[in-house]
Design a protein around this nucleic acid. Structure first.
Length: 554
RNA sequence: GGGCGCGUGGCCUAGUCUGGAUAGGGCAACAGCCUCCUAAGCUGUAGAUCAGGGGUCCGAAUCCCCUCGCGCCCGCCA
């Protein structure tokens, strides 16, 4: 959990001590610009039967006495509370000096396992799949910053039809050739094409699947090692984006496993039989098949087993899944929590698909923009721009900047959109580095660093200070970080951090434009530099949560 | 057909959970700002029946109902 001066809670407590009917939703951070914290008296008026004016009067007297409150004004049924400027700045600076970060954090004993990506290793990772990784990695970083003990995990599908097709496609068409990702992908696409032509995958894939499911260890290992080659390339692409996954768990490991036995044992009284096949009835009238009539296990059974496995080392499981898995996820949770004795907290993050302006993404049909292609093209574009802007820098520096811009841009443009929304990938948008974008954020950091290097971190006496509108707005925005961080952790929403970053940086740009350092009185310089330093520290902290790579110079 | 989700200026997006003060940003367009700490920045102009209709409420982008459009799911695939 986060440790900081939580004025919002203090104001809520103060208000409740006067009017017990006050609820948390009556008192909120005010982002509309009217005040810092606002009390809405409409609901209260209904509840208490008092009129706006008397409620406002009561609250004003109570809230106004709090030491960090500058003034309270009532208007149109709102009680607007303004905090003292020192109340924003002092806690941030104190915290930074004490522990090096703001807000401070108290380690939460809860262990969280974030499962993300888990894409079938049948080809290079593309921009659609990468949405999963970007969301998952950001959520893991946010929860970790919040104080949870977080590990990330990739569930590797090396036991299904797709990877068997990958294996078989290569064996049929490329046998003896180099077993690299390019040839594997070509074989995979070719075998799917072939299966369409002949009219039925049973004929081509059937015998191999049968052999696989007869638990032919040699074949299981062969398929796994084929998948491992593609997985290696996926890992490499993700690492370029700064995404490193802690554990890789192979689905083939659950084909015969104690967890799988446990699933069938504990579900024994619910399992039904249909000519040898085993299934469960679901609340929505559908069935969840666990075993085929030939006795081999199905994906839902292995996924249940996998969740039991994850639960061995975690108190809270989070799965990042595409929206196509919504029903599966809901059913899985129902079975685990209602039919089995599963005590861990289980949450899903579902995200909408990304399509291209040329249509749906498809690895099989070859209609994809791979992460590597995207990164390469964006780095080129960024390099051209930075080379134009910074003719003074050597090529090596330019390249580092261009790569940071490309990586940050990809991550930010995906992370900033609410997971529920579908996205359409457009090159023209991807290659625009202005406005609400990663470079906009990165640039502010470089400016702040430049000021910091030239003039230092300033200082304030922690008593009363006066701030102009730009200084105050920035100090306020810096101070508010923990509220956004807790919401992002609570609702598993990296996009909230992105909104925060944009607001923070807008406030900084106003500050930078309007508040000079050079030529100002020393006491003004000191305060401005202190704000600059606080901003720089909090930006550094928050930007890394969504994988933005900040540079001291760009 | 049933279920889930989405629909906010030409384009992208915040706000929807928890109903309230002028619907906030950005891109593209137009007009400005570098003898001064980084102009990937800043200022201004123009642009919105919040998909449509009905309802609840003192008050609806937000809650409820219906309709339309788009996406996804409805396999002894994963």
């Amino acid at each position: 959990m986060l440790l900081f001066q939580d004025y919002l809670s203090k104001i809520r407590e103060s208000a409740k001590s006067i009017l017990p009917q006050v609820s948390d939703s009556d008192i909120l951070l005010d982002d509309s610009g009217f005040s810092d914290i606002v009390v809405r008296t409409f609901a209260l008026s209904k509840k208490t039967g008092m009129d706006f004016a008397s409620i406002a009067k009561e609250l004003e007297s109570s809230i106004g006495k709090l030491p960090f409150v500058e003034k309270v004004e009532s208007r149109n049924g709102y009680v607007n509370t303004f905090l003292k400027p020192s109340a924003f700045l002092a806690p941030v600076i104190e915290s930074l000096e004490r522990s090096g970060e703001y807000p401070d954090v108290f380690q939460d004993p809860e262990r969280v396992c974030v499962e993300h990506t888990s894409t079938n290793p049948t080809g290079p990772i593309h921009i659609g799949r990468a949405r999963n990784s970007i969301i998952g990695d950001s959520v893991a970083r946010i929860l970790s910053r919040y104080g949870y003990r977080v590990t990330t995990q990739y569930y590797v599908n090396d036991a299904g039809k797709q990877v068997i097709a990958l294996y078989e496609g290569f064996r049929r068409y490329f046998d003896g050739k180099d077993r690299n990702v390019g040839n594997l992908l070509a074989g995979y696409q070719k075998i799917y094409q072939e299966m369409e032509n002949i009219g039925g995958e049973a004929k081509i894939l059937g015998p191999v699947i049968k052999q696989y499911e007869s638990n032919d260890q040699e074949l299981v290992e062969e398929v796994k090692s084929t998948a491992a080659i593609v997985l290696q390339s996926i890992k490499g692409s993700l690492e370029k984006l700064g995404i490193k996954i802690d554990d890789f768990v192979w689905e083939s490991g659950f084909l015969q496993s104690s967890e799988l036995d446990q699933v069938f044992n504990s579900l024994d009284s619910y399992v039904k039989d249909e000519s040898g096949a085993k299934y469960l009835d679901l609340p929505n009238g559908r069935k969840m098949y666990l075993r085929r009539s030939d006795g081999t296990s199905l994906y839902p059974a292995r996924d249940l087993a996998y969740h039991l496995f994850k639960a061995l080392n975690a108190d809270w499981l989070i799965d990042v899944l595409g929206e196509d898995h919504k029903d599966h996820g809901t059913a899985l949770k129902h079975v685990l929590t209602e039919l089995m004795d599963f005590k861990q907290r289980l949450d899903f993050i579902f995200y909408g698909f990304i399509s291209l302006d040329t249509g749906k993404l498809s690895t099989r049909r070859g209609n994809i923009v791979t992460l590597d292609q995207l990164l390469e093209r964006m780095t080129e574009e960024a390099l051209a721009i930075v080379a134009e802007k910074r003719k003074d820098l050597p090529d090596g520096e330019l390249k580092i900047i261009a790569e940071a811009v490309a990586v940050s841009s990809i991550r930010f443009s995906v992370a900033r959109v609410n997971a529920d929304k579908h996205m359409v990938f457009r090159w023209s948008e991807a290659l625009n580095f202005e406005g609400d974008s990663a470079p906009f954020i990165m640039y502010a950091y470089s400016r702040a660093t430049s000021l910091f290097k030239d003039f230092g971190k300033g200082g304030i006496n922690l008593g009363e200070i006066k701030l102009d509108q730009y200084e105050r707005k920035l100090a306020r925005q810096v101070f508010m970080y923990p509220y956004y961080l807790s919401d992002a952790a609570k609702y598993l929403r990296p996009d909230l951090i992105c909104s925060y970053l944009l607001g923070l940086v807008k406030a900084y740009n106003d500050f930078y434009t309007n508040c000079r350092i050079k030529g100002e009185l020393p006491e003004i310089q000191e305060i401005r530099l202190a704000i600059n330093h606080a901003f720089r520290s909090v930006l550094f902290d928050s930007a890394r949560l969504v994988g933005i790579r900040l540079l001291e110079e760009m």
